[in-house]
Design a protein around this nucleic acid. Structure first.
Length: 554
RNA sequence: GCGCCCGUAGCUCAGUCGGAUAGAGCACCGGCCUUCUAAGCCGGUGGCCGCUGGUUCGAGUCCAGCCGGGCGCACCA
């Protein structure tokens, strides 16, 4: 409807110019929006205000000209008013909204999807937790966010691949291996100190016990370095399996897992470095090789090969991002923990250094989750061994609630997750408010079915029974859904969908309380069933976009 | 010290490309179940949009400076 009105306004503008009422030729940038205030019509535009300067006329005068030119636009407009500052407040004829409702129903579950993505290929890399332990709650937020971004992009017409990058090379896996080894040796009765930076958590001991049960004392005499490597790899593989099952429990799926270890062993990292070398962006200092990232906007140069000859994490990441871009993705999106924000500069620099456009990478930062229980903070961190896993949270509050909680705020804002509160306030939680709207609609249809009433085939004639202001307002809100999805996709902000769903649920609950759907009046009942079906359709879709279920009963 | 993020009601947070009288949930007070699920609805209380200046017809939104909180500033990942 917005674009429809925009078109009408542009027509009116062109007409006024031809008629000599307006002189400028500029196409102004103006806004068509849903006004906050009830009495300001269905849609409002500031077009007259933005024209005031070039036309050297008062906004009110210009607005009046456009008002006259708009007329009733072939019966589609019920009212066009010039308001205080020069706003044009437009009210569509009820008929126009009923037609819109027919379109929404006809689109069915496809309503809300759009083609703005134009089939462009996008890759979303998210979660990507190191396989050194089960997913904790912070990973959960990243997983929920990345997954919802992927869903929203798909709905907006992008071709999306979801990817998990496994950091299974380097120091952390070594630390994991030595942690397992230390626990194992102690289990064997050998007095072995636990590594200073090791992972002290219980699951490490469990892994060591598994090794002991299977291999007995076999690792006692093995060269330390070999044992650490073998046990580290095995532990990482097992922990990755745990992560995969955690993700499955959370309803998150990936198209591909890429292993850093594989990347390094294949020689592709060296190949990427070789390209940088040839482009003249590497140099040696103190026995280590650096990339001249400062030449591409980074704060300083970054090491790619350590003085001991080992590859840095950054080197693998250069290779990884290079391959993603070469694979033909129009855009790649990285969802990172906010503590990695300092990494963005060097990543962009490396893309530029390889001769590609850094704008093709977009990084979404997900802020920390501080967990509390009854107001008391719960300390977390793999290093302390004390943390609340995603699995714990799912067991305690459930998948829907956890997802909803993660996605109801902007990802770059800190999130305080109080487990006790989430559980105790279960009844008043916004997620149930939205789901309950869906459930009520299902209830209406159950009620109708019991009375042998079926929703009629949608048609203009049937819709004529809709005329209550709340009914037209609901349609007006439903009409916004596609642009909400587009906005969420473009800005990579899935929480917009949640906020919108809350509004739809709220308007529906108010409507439900005021107007009875299934009544003795056949015409009204039929029309309202269709309206309510459209509401349920939109709420169901919105919830699906953030990975939250829409229950028929609660 | 430098960089990034955040600062909106007692609490947790929305607020789209700068638009008209800044919203929601929780909490608190008072109403509404003979009728499609009261996990709901209606009404009320509650605001220096961190502070100061700037940009303009108009600023919670943009710019600068400051204050407060978080996170970074590795040849770790």
């Amino acid at each position: 409807m917005k674009s429809r009105l925009r078109g009408l306004l542009l027509e009116a503008l062109a007409g006024a110019r031809q008629g000599g009422e307006l002189s400028s030729n500029e196409i102004p940038s103006f806004v068509v929006e849903v006004p906050r205030e009830e009495g300001h019509g269905d849609l409002a535009s500031n077009v007259a205000m933005t024209l005031a300067r070039v036309e050297r006329k008062g906004p009110q005068v210009i607005a009046a000209i456009l008002q006259r030119r708009l007329g009733d636009a072939g019966g589609r407009l019920a009212r066009v008013e010039v308001a205080g500052g020069g706003f044009l407040n437009v009210t569509f004829a009820a008929e126009a909204w009923r037609e819109r409702l027919l379109e929404i129903l006809a689109a069915g579950d496809g309503y809300g999807t759009s083609l703005v993505g134009a089939g462009k290929r996008v890759q979303v890399e998210f979660c990507s937790a190191n396989p050194t332990g089960p997913l904790h709650i912070g990973h959960g937020r990243g997983a929920a966010t990345g997954d919802a971004i992927a869903r929203v992009l798909e709905a907006a017409g992008y071709g999306v691949d979801r990817e998990y990058y496994i950091n299974d090379a380097g120091g952390q896996i070594e630390t994991l291996g030595s942690s397992v080894l230390a626990r194992y040796l102690v289990l064997c009765g050998i007095d072995e100190p636990f590594p200073e930076n090791g992972y002290p958590a219980e699951y490490v001991t469990d892994l060591a016990r598994e090794v002991l049960e299977r291999d007995g004392q076999r690792w006692v005499g093995v060269e330390r370095k070999d044992a650490v490597e073998a046990l580290g790899r095995e532990a990482a593989d097992k922990l990755l399996d745990v992560i995969r099952s955690d993700l499955a429990a959370f309803g998150v799926r990936f198209d591909r897992f890429t292993s850093e270890r594989d990347l390094q062993r294949s020689g592709r990292v060296e190949a990427a470095l070789e390209e940088l070398e040839q482009r003249g962006h590497l140099y040696v200092n103190d026995g280590a090789r650096f990339m001249r990232s400062s030449a591409f906007g980074d704060d300083k140069d970054r090491a790619v090969v350590k003085s001991d000859g080992g590859l840095t994490y950054f080197a693998s990441d250069i290779c990884y991002h290079r391959e993603k871009l070469l694979a033909g993705y129009d855009r790649i999106i990285d969802v990172w923990g906010a503590d990695h924000h300092g990494y963005i500069g060097r990543m962009r620099a490396s893309i530029a250094a390889l001769g590609m456009e850094p704008e093709r990478l977009r990084v979404v930062l997900v802020q920390m989750v501080s967990l509390s229980r009854d107001g008391a903070p719960v300390r977390m961190g793999k290093r302390t061994g004390e943390f609340v896993t995603l699995r714990d949270v799912l067991d305690e509050v459930g998948c829907d609630l956890a997802r909803f909680f993660f996605l109801s705020r902007k990802s770059d804002a800190h999130l305080d997750f109080d487990l006790e509160l989430a559980r105790r306030q279960t009844a008043e939680n916004p997620v149930f408010y939205i789901q309950y709207a869906y459930t009520r609609i299902a209830g209406i249809f159950r009620q109708a079915a019991e009375k042998g009433i079926e929703a009629p085939v949608p048609s203009s004639a049937v819709m004529a029974a809709l005329g209550q202001p709340e009914e037209l307002a609901l349609v007006r809100l439903l009409a916004e859904f596609p642009e909400i999805v587009e906005g969420a996709a473009e800005s990579l902000e899935p929480h917009r969908v949640v906020v919108y769903a809350q509004k739809v649920a709220g308007d529906f609950h108010r409507y439900y309380a005021r107007h009875r759907c299934v009544s003795g009046d056949v015409a009204t009942t039929g029309a309202r069933l269709l309206l309510v079906r459209a509401v349920g359709q939109v709420i169901g879709r919105a919830l699906a976009l953030v990975g939250v279920g829409a229950p028929e009963r609660m």
